[in-house]
């Protein structure tokens, strides 16, 4: 990771761990390179030590274009393969309107109003790996 000058809104997105949930807060504008790096980091974290959920807080993000939209969808799909659920939290109304107009409805993505609701959602509908029966799909909370 190269050092970024100070004017950059966010160079590197840290991944925090709260028990078995990974918390990622994207602040401000993100460079493509760092978005892809985040995708790698999250999956690496899950692989390193199992997590049942990932919460991506985008309440500070002012613009989500199709690139960042794809990255979010791919993080969710990748995490799913590693038996963790991803919830994207706090999308701004302006961003939601723009994405819909853009044609990017991200139907497979789980969403929540804020981090708190996201954590609650993960608690109430845990990932298959966290359930004792381990049967996929029994509680599948799919909004699409």
């Amino acid at each position: 990771m190269t050092e970024q000058p100070g004017w950059l809104p966010q160079a590197h997105v840290p991944v925090l761990r709260l028990d078995d949930v990974l918390l990622v807060a994207i602040q401000g504008d993100l460079r493509d390179e760092n978005a892809e790096r985040l995708q790698y980091d999250v999956l690496q974290h899950i692989a390193d030590s199992p997590a049942t959920g990932v919460v991506i807080d985008i309440s500070s993000v002012e613009v989500v274009d199709s690139f960042l939209g794809r990255v979010l969808a791919e993080i969710a799909a990748g995490a799913e393969l590693l038996a963790a659920r991803t919830v994207v939290a706090g999308m701004r109304p302006t961003v939601a309107i723009t994405l819909v107009e853009l044609g990017l409805t991200l139907t497979g993505l789980r969403t929540a109003l804020d981090v708190q609701s996201a954590l609650r959602m993960l608690r109430e509908h845990p990932a298959p790996a966290a359930r004792e029966h381990g049967e996929r799909g029994a509680y599948d909370y799919d909004r699409s």
């Binding site: 002012e62 613009v63 199709s66 690139f67 302006t94 723009t98």
Partner: peptide, 17 residues
């Protein structure tokens, strides 16, 4: 408006990419 701003910036991002 905020919605217009966001739409324009997003369009610019798509086109620049």
């Amino acid at each position: 408006s905020l919605v217009q701003q966001t739409k324009l910036v997003t369009a610019a991002s798509e086109l620049a990419r």
